[in-house]
Simulated assay, not measured.
Amino acid sequence: MLAAVTDDRFERLQKQYGDDLALAALVEAGADRLPLPGAGETLKRWRALAAVAAHDLSLVKLFEGHTDALAILAELGGDAPDGSLWATWCAEPPDARVAFEAHRDFSRSIADSASSLSPTNAASPTLRLHGTKAWCSGAASVTHAVVSGWNAAGEPCLAAVSMQQPGVTVTEQGWHAVGMAGSASVDVRFDGAHATQLGQPGDYTRRTGFWHGGAGIAACWYGGAWGIARAVHERSGGSKAPHRLAHLGAIDVALAGAAAVLRESAEWIDTHRDADAQAVAMRARLVVEHAAEEVIHHAGRALGAGPLCRDARFARAMADLPVFLRQSHAERDLASLGALALESKAASWML
């Protein structure tokens, strides 16, 4: 495995590409070969996600989806060819579901580049995909995707699909937000596109890596909040304005608490690799979500309208992060975590 993103490596890429840094450049540099979650270096993986997020939240949306797809492929027995750009599209809104049709007669070799198939285990079932997939980040730029859908028995399944084949249409529909506009999260239509099944029905949420990946989203949110906080810090150098300093203090409290929870969560996941990490992941996500909202609130009040109107990077981050945070299910997630808390001992809250 290639080295994960280091601060020095990412700084070099950032200086080389600036605002033009894209997923393809990260992949070409080998920056996508992160430690797998739960393999002993989860915090290193999350630091890489946070570093990309602090630079550009739309970019980390694509980067996280790509690296999550690689982790899913590793867990469920798939492969990714060198230089391929992946996405993970597993949102399941009721009005956009993809049907997986078994296709037993499809026997072309996975290694045949003309097949347009995703390069996964040739022994895996082959499928045809039908329907529209929503929230497909980076659809116009990726080469492959891990897609969720439903088989004829009504079971949830995963498949690896090549985007470079007939039967795949990237639309311009499904995204109107200003925030996270760079993620280009549009609808994709599948009309009989070939795909390869990953794992068994139900494996997407049943596998231990599901909640590991869910916790990794919190690292992206944290990186976005850290990037905003860094701008406040840089613009507050030498300031003696008590209100600005108070806002900076509030930002420090929010980020310090969130960072502590992320470090603790990463250690727990590495120590309990095969355990159910739902409570750990949900707690990390909710703590970081709250901290990020605090950072957004205090950053705007600390700096006023000037940077929001004249600093493109800061303004973009302030618009992007609230949209990205809505990947959380808010009170529904709080209720789920509360139910898990009832099942555990209150002593777990003790120092």
Score class of each variant (00 low, 15 high):
Thr271Asn: 07
Ser239Gln: 08
Ala246Ser: 10
Met282Asn: 04
Leu245His: 08
Ala277Phe: 02
Ala277Cys: 07
Leu255Asn: 07
Ala250Cys: 12
Val287Gly: 01
His290Val: 12
His272Asp: 11
Ala258Asn: 03
Arg285Ser: 11
Glu267Met: 07
His272Val: 06
Leu245Met: 14
Ala292Phe: 02
Met282Trp: 12
Ala292Lys: 05
Ala279Phe: 01
Ala256Asp: 12
His272Ile: 04
Ile269Asp: 02
Trp268Tyr: 14
Ala277Gly: 08
Gly237Pro: 00
Leu248Gly: 13
Ile251Arg: 01
Ala258Trp: 01
Ala254Phe: 01
Arg263Met: 11
Ala281Pro: 06
His272Thr: 05
Ala284Gly: 14
Ser265Val: 09
Arg235Trp: 08
Ala275Arg: 10
Trp268Asn: 09
Ala241Asp: 01
Ala246Tyr: 13
Glu293Pro: 02
Asp276Gln: 08
Ala275Leu: 11
Gly238Leu: 04
Ala254Arg: 00
His247Tyr: 06
Gln278Ile: 09
Ser236Trp: 05
Ser265Ile: 05
Ala258Phe: 05
Arg273Glu: 14
Val288Gly: 05
Ala275Gln: 04
Thr271Arg: 12
Glu293His: 13
Arg283Ala: 13
Ala259Ser: 14
Ala254Cys: 05
His290Phe: 10
Trp268Val: 11
Val287His: 00
Ala277Thr: 03
Ala277Pro: 04
Ala260Gln: 15
Ala277Tyr: 01
Ala246Ile: 04
Arg244Asp: 01
Ala284Arg: 01
